[in-house]
Design a protein around this nucleic acid. Structure first.
Ligand SMILES: [Zn+2]
Ligand SMILES: [Zn+2]
Lengths: 367, 367
DNA sequence: TTACAAGTCG
DNA sequence: CGACTTGTAA
């Protein structure tokens, strides 16, 4: 499975959801305002309209045989007023609207990789909104600076040469595709500049719904070779909001550890949970991703809302071998929990070691 | 001047500004989105573009020979969550978006008045925005419930039969005109239902700029026979915001009285300034309006910003005779201040008496 | 960068 | 109806 080739979209990680994005339409031609059902006033509730599974794109990350990875460029400022900041702790990018965010991708390849593409697709990460297409709000679509821009309805813009804006003909989803121009060197990073053209809070658009970006590595047949997922918050004060969200999560964890004595934290080579503290400073380390079924940040922050809800928590792991080990452990744990039938509340898994064998910092937290 | 007839738009109150609204276009035909210069992101600053005086509609209230007056219907709830509430203290209507607000108008007429109309025109009340046309925000214009409605770009809607939506062909201002169907009785009230189709805070529309409604009584030649002006705030919580604004003004006045010993408050038949306390409860009393040159609420709340700025503060007076007396006093005071050349900071004038001669509560506050 | 403003959630 | 969220102004 480590040979470059076409994956079924799930790669090494078994996944039950379908990969709904192998088909899509041609370049956009700036369709004018659709009377899409998005209500301007109220946040759309859990949709009662039919939302076939196939309309929901897969966000299950997998490095694939190319070992698809991402990394953020150097953050402009470390202050609270930075234009963007990536939180390793939450795997979340906080950025101002229109800010250029440099993202680097790399793959393993011998020689030159040709005909590869990076696709960036925005989704609403919460299940009750995941079926809605992420589009810009009417205000920003028809702002003067967007006039005459064909892709003005797209939420994600890419400044790279050769970027193509596509709209899936069946789902209506908007994505941007840029060629992956791998340099001759065996392992090298290619940088892309992405910007996001609405605020998370934009009424008539995202409307305060949480979002993620799905980055897929594709060949020229739009077959998915690898997938990454990054949570996203576009807001006026990325620094403030990152700190506040991280603080809230940290608080929740502490509270959980206090109030639930049966909830133990096992920490190897790590004195405390201080690894959760706000780590504003770069550099971020490159990482593959493995997905663990878990409550998402929302679940952690707001407590249990929907009993049966299980979402995907993303774990970034350095080192392919570590990733494989953890993926196996993940499968075992999920199987085990299913068999045990006991309510799983939380397990948080952090692995920053470059090798599991070296028994570097590794912390488990079970219920 | 008390005979019904066509006024020059200024009536008994001398006014230097022109009445820019005797000419306007025909019924609307739902023009599609203009690339008007309103910036979606930043609040427009004081415009550097030419803004001829003639484009600014007069908001100078005058009862005119018909003794044009208004009154609000009974407020639905007295709670903080009321759909609308009118503050006599600030002459300001606080309403939720889309709430039906019943406004009654009356005129003096013997027998039946024919061919009279009420025009409702929204303006931005602060001088730096008064030249901008009040329009709905793009989000709300193209919300599904506004689709196919010809006047969907209008901010003020009137539910009365015969309401006509007009857009001034030269200025682009949107107004609604409804016939004034006076009943045979000599003095009677005619009720209109107005609703306001954007929030004060709507980005790309009002954008947090303060607004007023200008109500004019007109004949069939669109000549102005009387004018009323009401400040307006469309928001999610009218009760909360009214209380907060009134509280802020009250606080400012108290502070001013403390810190400025030379600033005296003369109160006749009134023990304290408690008449400023929040008076949430109806009934509102009918009133004519006289305008006094004064810093507006903004000035009071934010303190002196622009030295030379003098705006119009609206005073509602019960009784025509009182109104005339006060108008005279107003003129005298303004002349006096001009001659004295000393900086006038504030004078607040409250008159709730039905007759000056009865020496009812009357409070002056000079610098 | 801090404090306010104002729509929305619980 | 209180408290939070989050864009904006000072
Ligand atoms: Zn937007
Ligand atoms: Zn609006």
């Amino acid at each position: 499975m480590c040979k470059p080739g076409v994956s079924d979209g799930n790669g090494a990680i078994p996944e039950s959801t379908t990969n709904g994005f192998n088909s899509f339409g041609q370049d956009d031609h700036g369709r004018s305002y659709p009377d899409s059902g998005t209500n301007v006033y109220c946040r759309p509730q859990a949709s009662l309209s039919p939302s076939p599974m196939s309309l929901i794109p897969s966000s299950q990350p997998f490095p694939g045989s190319y070992n698809f990875q991402f990394e953020f460029g150097k953050q402009p400022k470390d202050t609270k007023s930075t234009a963007w900041t990536f939180s390793d702790m939450t795997n979340k990018l906080y950025a101002q609207k229109d800010a250029m965010c440099p993202v680097r991708f790399r793959i393993d390849c011998d020689g030159v990789a040709n005909g590869l593409y990076i696709r960036a697709l925005p989704i609403y990460s919460r299940p009750e909104h995941v079926q809605d297409v992420v589009k810009r709000c009417p205000n920003h679509i028809q702002a003067p600076e967007s006039a005459n821009i064909p892709h003005r309805e797209h939420f994600i813009w890419c400044e790279n040469q050769g970027a193509r804006y596509v709209t899936d003909s069946s789902t209506g989803r908007c994505a941007v595709i840029a060629p992956y121009d791998a340099t001759p060197a065996g392992t090298s990073w290619v940088t892309y500049l992405f910007s996001f053209k609405c605020l998370n809070s934009c009424v008539g658009g995202p409307n305060r719904r949480e979002m993620s970006i799905i980055y897929t590595l594709e060949n020229s047949n739009q077959e998915v070779l690898g997938r990454l997922s990054i949570d996203l918050r576009i807001c006026a004060c990325p620094g403030r909001d990152r700190k506040s969200e991280e603080g809230k999560i940290e608080l929740q964890r502490q509270k959980r550890n206090e109030t639930t004595p049966s909830h133990k934290t096992t920490s190897i080579n790590r004195p405390s949970t201080s690894h959760m503290s706000v780590n504003t400073s770069p550099p971020q380390q490159p990482a593959s991703q493995v997905a663990v079924h878990e409550q998402t940040m929302y679940g952690i922050m707001r407590g249990p809302r929907d009993e049966s809800r299980e979402e995907t928590f993303t774990l970034r792991v350095k080192g392919r071998r570590n990733y494989e080990v953890l993926a196996m452990l993940r499968d075992a744990l999920e199987t085990s929990s299913r068999l045990n039938q006991r309510p799983r509340n939380e397990y948080v898994l952090t692995a920053k070691s470059s090798s599991v064998q070296k028994s570097n910092p590794l912390s488990f937290s079970f219920t």
